[in-house]
Design a protein around this nucleic acid. Structure first.
Lengths: 191, 191
DNA sequence: GACCGTAACACTAACCGTTAGCTTTTCCTA
DNA sequence: TAGGAAAAGCTAACGGTTAGTGTTACGGTC
């Protein structure tokens, strides 16, 4: 009974959040990330600076909106895979999907912007660290896999590493496969 | 032509740099990293804020003074190893030494401070990314190792990953060995 | 020994991301 | 429809960082 479906408040909140994110991305692409200030974004989105920061924890977070989606999808790839599917192929499939998503048509300008800003590159890296840690937790929680906690953390890091390595490669799809042959060998060695 | 070591100017510069670093570390440990401002450090070291920033690129850099040493030692471990020594054991030896250095007596308060600050943890992570890239370059430049450029970058990342994984482990030395069994398997798989 | 170029340092004043403190608006629910 | 809470707003600051502009002290040269 307590669950409210109509939720105008939630819709408005989501709309505000989306408007801020869209405005920010547009301005960043138009004028460059470093040339656009938080106050510019807030003014253009017609919200207060404090409102902006109640929706996004930092300026960089405006760019990596899908952050939490990625994190959940990775954990889901482990916990939600078919009962008989081994870990590594499931992870490879998910990383493949992520890489495809980021190398799709239209995403190029965004990644050019990210590569051009030290702050954004560092933020992305620390984001991946969080992803690796939640992935490690998901792997460690799987009763089918008998490995040490350290091995789980290690393989999580290795798998996440595949993502930037592939993105910076000439042939991202082939790169994922090449890196994952190494990941799989590492996982087998931890048995 | 010849490198002047005795130059009074260089000695004074080095002394200023050292005084700033020592003062900063002392204040950080006394009062906590977040509780000490750049202006505090500059005042206590008796230099101008701009002088501090001409020696250190950021507040975090004050803590990671040995940054470039680490980077050089890693590359050196590859390029300077015995002619018949394989890559992985040489890397393992160096990572062992680094881990021992960071878990030594007296280093504990510094690492407690680092673990307590998000800014410092993120800085350390981006530092490691730089280390991994220069290590990858050193590996790729070795004519004895016939691997793809991607495999070199991959194994460099994997090896660097061992360092934080070990530091956060209960038994750092054993952790290095465990992770490196996986690293070695990955490297063999890339042949 | 006087001279000049330059590296190191200093000072002011800001810029920019971020936050605290507090008020106003919106809208759920009882 | 009133009460209360979530969301948004405003002001003012804090702290890291940099630009602009001198000033000093050293090193090589004549």
């Amino acid at each position: 009974m307590t669950v409210q479906q109509s939720g105008r408040r939630e819709r408005k909140k989501a709309a505000t959040r989306q408007k801020i994110a869209d405005t920010a991305l547009r301005l960043f692409l138009e004028r460059g990330y470093d040339e656009v200030g938080i106050r510019d974004v807030a003014a253009e989105a017609d919200v207060a600076v404090t409102t902006l920061f109640s929706h996004f924890a930092s300026k960089e977070a405006l760019v990596f909106e899908q952050d939490q989606d990625f994190e959940q999808r990775l954990a889901q790839a482990v916990t939600g895979r078919a009962p008989d599917e081994p870990l590594i192929p499931a992870l490879r499939r998910e990383i493949h999907a992520l890489v495809r998503h980021c190398t799709a048509e239209g995403a190029a300008p965004i990644w050019r912007m990210i590569d051009g800003s030290t702050a954004l590159r560092e933020y992305e890296e620390s984001m991946r660290l969080r992803h690796a840690e939640s992935l490690a937790a998901a792997i460690a929680a799987d009763p089918r896999l008998s490995r040490t906690a350290l091995a789980c953390r290690t393989i999580a890091r290795f798998a996440i590493d595949a993502y930037p390595l592939a993105r910076e490669s000439d042939e991202p799809e082939a790169a994922v496969d090449e890196v994952f042959r190494m990941v799989e060998a590492a996982w087998d060695a931890a048995a």
